[in-house]
Design a protein around this nucleic acid. Structure first.
Lengths: 339, 339
DNA sequence: CTGTTAGCGCCTTCAA
DNA sequence: TTGAAGGCGCTAACAG
């Protein structure tokens, strides 16, 4: 009466429906029109009776199609990633794939580990929001020749489909906005640029834009996320150095904006009055923080969705050359950049 | 030169190492001590040369052990869920399991869909943060007799291991804090109670605590997350009805706290001065919102970790009766509940 | 329209 | 210490 009841197999269904496995298999694979009504109904009821579900393991083994897609997410704690994930998931559901989510916690080691894992589960494609992934990771990846698309960020020296924000447009929009609001000295804050193309592109667009407006001062600084002292000092100095001018800070991503806001709190700088503040990435709490923080919102969900669409295209054999897809950001103006 | 290179199989390795598949299999399964040094080395290099990875699909099929654990998350957009997830992941890594993350988006349909999916991938256990899941879902679950543990919230009429917050302790701590801070009328705000045990337990503990302090007024209201008007009115009324008394609001979870804060903004109520505010769940922006918001922080990561440990125990055959594990919350005091 | 058969890649007796 | 053979649950020829 107790003990593990073995899962019913296709043979059990065949037996119960008094037919062969092939017909059941056909039924399962949508070739139902090839079956007589009678047989179809028998199979239907047998499946229902036994509460049968085909084993994806066996299917995957046989067909080589696992319908699995690997997701490598740099930091699942980041709202950006989560929103993207959400878009990917929706797309997966629509296309009949199942996402295998791997959180690398911003550690390159984990990235390698998960890459292996995904291969061993024979995922049909991968969507990656990479942290580091150089050499080793790249080699493994290229060997496996798996359909893959990058999100947000490119990997240096690696030609691959990418989906992300139109960094030029976004950074330009943000910068112009600040200038129009009358800010005269602007500090672009980012995490260390490294080889991260998004950071570099945003910074470059920022500088290019400022160059078009003589008299406006452009500065930039690279600050690791948790270097609070460096952050405090940088802001303090920027503030005193341009005393008498209208100043503003652009923060290159959401996680950093949080740190900037905290730092301003600590050193008693009020955004909106003492200093302007504009951050990339929308934050659910942006309107609640003081007079509100102006943000540049990315269409995160769409980015995720598009990324998955792109892998699926590749899985289905699209052979076009490397495909880059960018989405425009949207400026959401709040008190922190008011005149 | 191009075209898909077929993944190497165990046979390829065997061939390359000039031996049989059995030995390779033994090598892979840690029975390396049974192999001669010579053979072991040959296999080792063959594996490295071919960059071979055993197919989990085939393994799963053969042994019935997929090393897959299904995670059903009600809303991946919720920071609570993400933190828990993060703990689960860490534990998975340690125990050698792979999480299959399913986001149900708070939809019962999705829950059923994913339950099927997980079964079809033959996951060995499930960790669930359920939304609804009644009848249908339950039946399917009970039939499958899969090791399972619930997170945060129980499912009515379903005996199952649970890991979550000590709601009584937490709600009591929160309530006592407010009373000690001199608040005389306290409104407990939650989403509709429904059959959600966490909401009910928190509310009950709140009322029980207040009962011990004569003269303190306790109220409560149920407000769906996005009913902004209802929220506004409820707060407004509460505020005017107890004019002249020191009032505070407790919000039963993080998502709701965000809505409460927004509503207070809208109707011009300032937490910390006009009214007290305390929310369950820590928020990364809690210190940035006005004078700061006092929160009751859950050890989310630990909860996730513990949940996974528990499923693994079950997978490995623990037959103890239903196991409930609760963690204490920690009050983080900020400006919103100052005297 | 329907059934038989031969593997997919791996592990596990069983025999050498 | 090693290898050969069978089968996990399923699909895809190939016959009827």
């Amino acid at each position: 009466m107790n003990g593990k009841v073995a899962r019913p197999t296709i043979s059990d269904v065949a037996k119960a429906a008094k037919t062969g496995k092939t017909s059941v298999s056909r039924y399962l694979n949508g070739e139902q029109n090839l079956l007589s009504d009678d047989l179809r109904i028998r199979i239907e009821t047998a499946i229902a009776d036994l509460d049968y579900r085909p084993s994806q393991m066996a299917r995957g083994l046989k067909r080589g199609r696992t319908r699995l897609i690997g997701l490598i997410i740099a930091d699942i704690t980041n709202p950006y990633s989560v929103d993207v994930l959400s878009g990917i998931e929706a797309a997966c559901r629509e296309k009949g794939f199942t996402p295998l989510v791997c959180n690398t916690n911003n550690e390159v080691d984990q990235e390698l580990h998960y890459l292996d894992l995904l291969r061993s589960y024979q995922v049909e494609g991968i969507v990656v929001n990479a942290v580091g992934m150089r050499e080793e990771g790249l080699n493994r990846l290229q060997q496996s020749a798996l359909p893959m698309v990058l999100i947000d960020r490119k990997i240096p020296d690696f030609a691959c489909d990418v989906v992300g924000l139109d960094n030029i447009q976004a950074a330009t929009t943000a910068t112009v906005h600040l200038i129009e609001q009358g800010f005269e000295a602007i500090l672009f804050l980012s995490e260390p640029l490294g080889m991260v193309n998004t950071r570099r592109e945003r910074l470059r667009a920022f500088r290019n834009t400022i160059d078009r407006y003589p008299g406006i001062v452009a500065e930039n600084a690279e600050i690791p996320l948790h270097e609070t002292e460096l952050m405090d000092n940088t802001l303090r100095q920027f503030h005193t150095r341009f005393r008498g001018m209208r100043k503003a800070v652009i923060s290159a991503n959401g996680a950093l904006t949080l740190q900037v806001a905290r730092a301003m709190r600590r050193i008693g700088l009020h955004w909106g009055s003492d200093i302007g503040l504009l951050g990339f990435d929308e934050l659910e709490w942006a309107e609640l923080a003081g007079v509100g923080i102006t943000t540049l919102k990315q269409p995160t969900w769409q980015i995720g969705y598009a990324a998955l669409e792109q892998v699926v295209k590749r899985i289905e054999g699209a052979a076009e050359s490397v495909h880059e897809q960018v989405f425009s950001g949207e400026l959401i103006v709040r008190g922190s950049t008011a005149r």
